[in-house]
Amino acid sequence: MRLLNQEDEADESTEVTWEDQQRINTFSKYNQRLQDIEDLLQKKKTEKEYLDDVAMELELADEDEPVMYKIGETIVHIKLSQAQKLLEKEHKSIDEEISGLQNRVEECENGMKELKVLLYAKFGNAINLETNPI
């Protein structure tokens, strides 16, 4: 942040119209949304990794021993084959969630890209839309 010289003040102030303001707002909305989704996506991915680990572990488990499988807050003792079936179901649902989130990430990124072109074209250096300043 710096104070502008008095002369610069008037020169640099390109008129911000309502349309521009809306674009800036939308950009900011996408940006915020993107961060939220990415946080969630990260969590889901970790969850998926856990599920993968569990699947591996179950491969090695003894067929005749019951598996202790956690559903909600409770652990149930079930047969290996059943546990694998439940796990498969969980896997499927988390895969769906992840791909849904990834679609939304793409949506946001595309929206931001379009707005960036418009806004940079109008404001040039007077506006900074990069998340990581270079």
């Binding site: 019951p66 202790m68 807050e73 409770t74 652990i75 149930v76 003792h77 079930i78 047969k79 084959s81 059943q82």
Partner: peptide, 14 residues
Amino acid sequence: DEAADDAPLKTTFE
């Protein structure tokens, strides 16, 4: 599976 499922469900709960 069905045959073996006849036993009551065993759970471990908190």
